Simulated scan of single mutants.
Amino acid sequence: MDISDCKLLKVTMDFSKLNEWRTLPCPKCEIQLDIVLACGQSFRWTQLHPGIWCGVFAKKLWLLKQNEDEVMYQVFGGKTTDSTAELIDYLQLDVNLNDLYKKWAKDDSIFSKMVDNKFHGIRVLRQDPVENLFSFICSSNNNIERISSMVEELCVHYGEQIETFGEKTFYAFPTVKALASVGVEAKLRELKFGYRAGYISRTAEYINSQEEGEKWLYNLRMEPYDIAREKLQKLTGVGAKVADCVCLMSLDKPGAIPVDTHVQQIACRDYLPSLKDKKSLTPKCYDEIATHFRNLWGEYAGWAQAVLFAAELQRPKVKNLVCLPQGRKSTKMEEIAKVSEPKTKIKRKKIK
């Protein structure tokens, strides 16, 4: 998967719909939205304006931005729930990333040299397992723009409508039951999903046939990493890397290490020179790389891998921005970006 591209979302801004921004105290050393939301973890985020991100999760439409000390957000659509708690959970802000960086730098001199201030604040999102799984089934031999387009097609054709913003309607990610319905594979082939259409349909049918239905996938959060990974690989279109992506990004397995060609290059060049002569990423080579990094970086090894992955790619550039209304100056976004909500204190986990 190539994450060097960014998807295009053309929306005419409807300034009348913008609310006042709510805030979370969170310095940039704990999260850099411009990297985290564009680095190929989730495929539903796009920039409305430099530094202002638009995306969907928890069946709501979100706008996010940040300054040096705060993450600011607006929410549209969906049920009335604790949006602050949902955002903290999604961004995993209870994890003290600064402490993790210090630990990794202490334990790994190579990490310390590779990661400068530009790559601080890179954390792993806690995504919905259904969206995460089917999005990464789409990722096989694909780039971020095409994956994003496929995910959008799934949402438009099989997801629940949640909000219209400007001239664009936003949808929640479809349920497993919706993706297991009759005719899905044929429709997705018509939409140019290719062989992935069959993967999506058969995987949805398998999960839907389980006694727990969709809960089968969510219950993997409570399984040990090895068991969850093994069960995922029984699904059509899910190999070791996709299984590890899902374990890391939605099943609460922070030690999962997805190994692709970029991670393989990092490992062979800087950590395991004995693997330089390996021309392909065999299962044995994959496991050797993942085990080495888990032993080196500890419980949150998958997070450390995500940092080096972003550093290796030199941070993907955002090429496409949303079209602003004619005659509207970009500074208008800042003029309306007033903050009135009280600050929320975030309780962070202690890193051992």
Results as ranks from 00 to 15, higher is better:
271 Y>C: 06
82 D>L: 02
345 K>C: 07
188 L>E: 05
174 P>C: 12
176 V>G: 00
202 R>L: 08
26 C>Y: 07
4 S>T: 15
93 L>H: 00
317 K>M: 12
160 E>L: 14
99 D>R: 05
19 N>V: 05
111 F>S: 02
77 G>I: 04
60 K>T: 14
93 L>K: 07
55 G>V: 13
224 P>E: 08
223 E>Q: 15
335 E>W: 10
137 I>Q: 01
77 G>Y: 03
106 K>F: 15
227 I>C: 04
275 L>C: 00
189 R>D: 09
314 Q>F: 12
47 Q>L: 11
175 T>V: 04
108 D>W: 02
344 T>E: 14
227 I>S: 03
131 E>T: 10
19 N>Y: 00
214 E>M: 06
137 I>P: 00
254 P>M: 12
273 P>M: 08
170 F>V: 05
247 C>N: 10
81 T>M: 01
54 C>M: 13
232 L>Q: 00
313 L>W: 10
72 M>D: 05
40 G>L: 10
225 Y>D: 02
289 I>L: 01
108 D>N: 01
25 P>D: 14
222 M>V: 12
224 P>C: 03
159 G>E: 12
141 N>K: 11
230 E>W: 08
138 C>H: 05
2 D>F: 03
239 G>N: 01
311 A>V: 13
88 I>N: 01
319 K>P: 04
282 T>K: 06
94 D>Q: 10
76 F>H: 03
237 G>Y: 00
155 C>T: 13
117 N>Y: 07
315 R>P: 08
230 E>R: 07
231 K>H: 02
218 Y>D: 09
288 E>A: 12
118 K>Y: 12
346 I>Y: 11
242 V>Q: 01
310 A>Q: 11
308 L>H: 08
335 E>F: 04
26 C>Q: 06
69 D>G: 11
40 G>V: 01
316 P>N: 08
92 Q>S: 15
52 I>F: 13
151 V>D: 10
233 Q>T: 13
252 D>P: 00
23 T>E: 01
211 E>V: 03
79 K>G: 04
279 K>Y: 02
234 K>C: 14
180 A>C: 07
35 I>R: 05
286 Y>N: 00
190 E>I: 08
317 K>P: 05
326 Q>V: 12
335 E>G: 11
268 C>S: 14
310 A>S: 14
148 S>A: 11
2 D>I: 03
18 L>Q: 02
38 A>I: 13
159 G>T: 04
308 L>D: 01
322 V>D: 02
188 L>I: 01
167 E>R: 14
130 V>A: 08
104 W>I: 00
224 P>G: 11
172 A>W: 09
189 R>V: 13
183 G>F: 04
270 D>W: 04
180 A>V: 09
346 I>C: 03
140 S>A: 15
209 S>V: 09
86 E>V: 03
241 K>H: 02
333 M>A: 13
170 F>E: 02
81 T>L: 10
189 R>M: 15
287 D>M: 05
344 T>P: 04
116 D>H: 09
279 K>P: 06
239 G>Q: 08
135 S>H: 10
183 G>A: 00
21 W>S: 03
282 T>L: 09
146 R>F: 10
152 E>C: 07
103 K>R: 15
306 A>C: 10
16 S>V: 07
286 Y>K: 04
46 T>G: 14
221 R>G: 09
347 K>T: 15
196 R>E: 03
38 A>Y: 09
218 Y>H: 06
23 T>I: 07
142 N>P: 07
48 L>W: 02
247 C>Y: 04
50 P>R: 12
247 C>W: 10
194 G>C: 05
198 G>M: 05
